[in-house]
Design a protein around this nucleic acid. Sequence first.
DNA 1: TAAAAATACTCCATAGGTATTTTAT
DNA 2: ATAAAATACCTATGGAGTATTTTTA
Lengths: 323, 323
Amino acid sequence: MISIRHLRYFAALAQHRHFGRAADACAISQPALSLQIKDLEEVLGAQLVERDRRQIRLTGLGEAFAGRAQHILRAVDELADLARASSPSLGGRLRIGMIPTVAPYLLPAVIRRLAERFPAVDLRPREAVTGKLTEDLISGSLDVAVMALPVSEPSLQDHPLFDEEFVLVRAPADRHKPPPSAESLGAMRLLLLEEGHCFRDQALAFCDMAPGLSQDPMEGSSLATLVRMVGAGMGVTLIPEMAVASETSAVEVSIARLAEPRPRRSIGLVWRKTNPLSEHFVQIGEIVRQEHDLLRHHRGAARIPDAQLRGGPGISDDLAGHA
Amino acid sequence: MISIRHLRYFAALAQHRHFGRAADACAISQPALSLQIKDLEEVLGAQLVERDRRQIRLTGLGEAFAGRAQHILRAVDELADLARASSPSLGGRLRIGMIPTVAPYLLPAVIRRLAERFPAVDLRPREAVTGKLTEDLISGSLDVAVMALPVSEPSLQDHPLFDEEFVLVRAPADRHKPPPSAESLGAMRLLLLEEGHCFRDQALAFCDMAPGLSQDPMEGSSLATLVRMVGAGMGVTLIPEMAVASETSAVEVSIARLAEPRPRRSIGLVWRKTNPLSEHFVQIGEIVRQEHDLLRHHRGAARIPDAQLRGGPGISDDLAGHA
DNA sequence: TAAAAATACTCCATAGGTATTTTAT
DNA sequence: ATAAAATACCTATGGAGTATTTTTA
């Protein structure tokens, strides 16, 4: 009879394509894995693995089997989640992901709040770009993630939390220039995050620049780096409003709202539609939203005058970043 | 860790709502089942079953769990089918269903042909009405079925095999009356199969009679019974063309084609879309089709003159049934 | 020859059986 | 009082470990 153990071991083998490493991943010895795979092949009466090469290969059946096995393993994991969901307070392991343009500003506070709210939960936060997060959600190696919406994966469920605007970071000397428009941004030396960050794509889309085309913008791997590059006079950049307080407090730059239409993005929570923990995820979303609100109303570390940050488009759209 | 064993046992318990009978169904002792259920509840850290009553009940979690478990068990069974499908010739257990208005005429020959064509297969034929067959297909307790199309279940795949007409069975004295129309049938005393047979619904639909309305037709539980009731002068009935040879050879009745538009039905093979054996099912369908062709061209036991059976609507539409 | 998988063997966790007790109606 | 599930206890299967051999690139 086929067992879940068979499926777990075979899925690991299909992933690693190596008995030793797959065995490690399963936390068993290599002979134990070999025997289980052999046993599975006997139960099925068919070969799954070609063992003659140095690097093993799966047969056609093996590939098909691996795909279905993965699917079943996810469903079985969700059975356990179902039991967790039936408890009024969440417990057990919770793997939560966040994109890099949100995580530095929200993750610490969110983790703190979650630990308070769900003391029994074993939190496993993770920071990664959207592509990696969606991949992990789908494969079942992540439970829930905070990212920019929309997500196009049909197997994923999204839950919008808040919208936020992008603001321009430029040299302090530019402080009194008028708010730039999308087109005028194209003419500036725009510093962007490296490939893979959704924020990069959103910024490019706003500037109406085909990705990678036009002037081939200079890249940084974090918003903190970009802001420092601006401070060094290397150009301008866009950052999400949420990042203003912490990223500009130690750097000599000025912050300006852009002219209408302003760039903005929607941040939301995402999970597998079949995940039974959705009720709890909605509660988690509420916590994330609250922490974002706190940040916007500068109860955080850095102080930016409210009148400026929230100023209407008619008056000074220029915000002071200061050391 | 959750095992497939847990799921199988719990699914049986959810089905039988009784530890003893569920244990029997799993071919284990009652204490063994009790222990596994208890263990499963411990693994999940939540209760699945309420044991305080004489008849056990599932908790809300238990019900949800049972549904998902069933789903997983089907997927696991399909893993085994996947391996079977990879073999050039079909082997293992094959559970094939057929509706009662087809089975008597085709099932024996089809079973014989299948046993020749797939010697390694362990054939489990079953006769049941459409509702039961679709239910069993969906639940995974049946692999493939021959029934009238269309089937509306989105999880099922159909594969049309052939169309066939319905013919009228009436008293021998009516032999030379003109072919009746759908409306005139309404005025006759129409004998039909009992509730649940798709053929009954098809006949009623043709006569444009709301099911169970109008004259409340007399019922029989098989076509053989209906034909004999006609022979006893109790009314008229409709039977599928396929049934003419064997059902009318021993009874004094006459067979007549109806006036256009003639009633007809489409017979096809049906299986779960996710079943990996579809390639083999297509071959099985070919065998069913061939056997139907043989029957139509009366290479079967009874002889009915071809000119009559296939006669155009203008000439004698009356066919001789004879003892 | 060196890395990787298979084989040999030993051990122990656990699924399952029978006998019996507890529980609830 | 009786049916049903839980408990006790024993056995045997088989999963996993270590040590070793075989295989192949």
